[in-house]
Simulated scan of single mutants.
Amino acid sequence: MTSPTPTLERWFDTMDSTDPDRVLDMIADDFAMSVQFSRGSGQSTEFVGDRAGLIAYLEQREKSTLVHHIMVGATVDDTELVLGQTTRDGVFEASFNATAQLTDNGLVRRLLICRTPEIDFA
């Protein structure tokens, strides 16, 4: 079965691996991102920037602890959109939305990820 969002599927598979830095090979030269990361109860952090911002995000992130599960996704023109959830040891941790705008050759040009433990779409 072919994924409707192959780039985001590969992105999150890479992020869940023991070598998440490989996502740096998936970004365009003019990459820009924002990751809105809620811990719940109004406690949140935003990670923003270009390649250097993604590197900073990767450096502070736990490796190989969370698993991303894409529940539904769609591609519209050059943009992939997904709704999913993360689990830790098989237990729900948070819901997330991700939107990736792609270049003509499939690199991620823009990335917006929002996550919260406050809502479970399951």
Rank of each mutant, 00 (worst) to 15 (best):
S3F: 04
T5R: 09
T5E: 09
L8V: 07
E9D: 11
W11A: 02
F12W: 10
D13Y: 07
T14C: 02
D16V: 01
S17C: 00
S17L: 05
T18E: 14
D19Y: 09
P20I: 00
P20Y: 03
P20V: 04
P20H: 02
D21F: 11
D21V: 08
D21N: 15
D21P: 02
V23H: 05
V23S: 03
V23Y: 00
D25N: 15
D25Y: 04
M26T: 14
M26C: 09
D29C: 01
D30H: 02
D30W: 04
F31H: 10
M33H: 11
S34K: 05
F37Q: 04
R39L: 13
R39M: 13
R39F: 08
G40Y: 13
G42R: 07
Q43H: 14
Q43S: 09
Q43R: 06
Q43E: 11
S44P: 01
T45P: 01
T45G: 02
E46Y: 00
E46I: 10
F47M: 14
D50L: 02
R51N: 02
G53A: 10
L54I: 01
I55F: 00
A56R: 13
Y57K: 03
L58T: 03
L58M: 08
R61K: 09
R61V: 01
E62L: 14
K63I: 13
L66S: 06
L66R: 11
H68T: 07
H68M: 06
H68I: 04
H68Q: 02
H69W: 06
H69L: 12
H69I: 14
V72W: 05
V72D: 11
G73R: 05
G73M: 08
V76T: 09
D78Y: 01
D78Q: 05
E80S: 00
L81W: 10
V82K: 03
Q85G: 01
Q85A: 08
T86C: 00
T87E: 06
R88F: 12
R88W: 12
R88I: 08
D89E: 15
D89T: 13
G90Y: 09
G90M: 10
V91C: 06
F92S: 15
A94V: 00
F96G: 00
F96C: 00
F96M: 08
N97C: 05
N97V: 15
A98Y: 01
T99V: 12
A100F: 03
Q101S: 09
L102H: 07
T103S: 12
G106I: 09
L107D: 14
L107S: 12
R109E: 14
R110W: 11
R110I: 07
L111N: 01
I113Y: 00
I113R: 00
P117K: 04
P117C: 06
I119R: 07
D120Y: 03
A122D: 15
